[in-house]
Amino acid sequence: MKTKKVAVYGLLIALAFIFSYIDSLVPMPFAVPGMKLGLANLVVITALYTMGPKQAFVLSIVRIILVGFTFRDPSTLAFSIAGGLLSWMLMSIFRHIKLFSMTGVSIIGGVAHNLGQILVAMVYLESGYVIFYFPALLVSGVITGTLIGLLGMLVVKRLKNAIKD
């Protein structure tokens, strides 16, 4: 059982890592900082629904640190961690209260990720004007969050038994 857990973690982290790379390759129609497909969130939300909040947290943080030191500048780690934490926290809460299905939770996760990044950017740059990026990120977050949520439902349906220990 323990060996399986280690294997599943390794597999999911590797997957999240590769998805982050693909995220950085996919061009978005507007060059708004932080706008991305959010494929990496597919792995986090799948973990949240099959394994639980604690496991999703570990996965999310390990992914962010790995990605921060490889595909991105380590100086952007603070933004990613803020976004990742807020996203994980809200997704865990909304999954627990069952107000929304996985799609709704995924949307909340995507939007929260952007919001967390913007809040840190406002402090870091000492400029409140960064908030003007939020409306565009909100709209894109809803669209990509919906796609990731629908995809996640299909994934969870097929993987539930394989991942559960």
């Binding site: 107000l99 929304f100 299905s101 799609t103 709704g104 949307i107 909340i108 939007v111 409306p135 565009a136 909100l138 709209v139 977050g141 809803v142 919906t146 949520g149 629908l150």
Partner: peptide, 16 residues
């Protein structure tokens, strides 16, 4: 997808 999801999508999109 639940009805609540659609409401959430509607509200957030309208807000944005």
């Amino acid at each position: 997808m639940k009805k609540n999801d659609l409401i959430l999508i509607g509200i957030l999109l309208a807000l944005g």
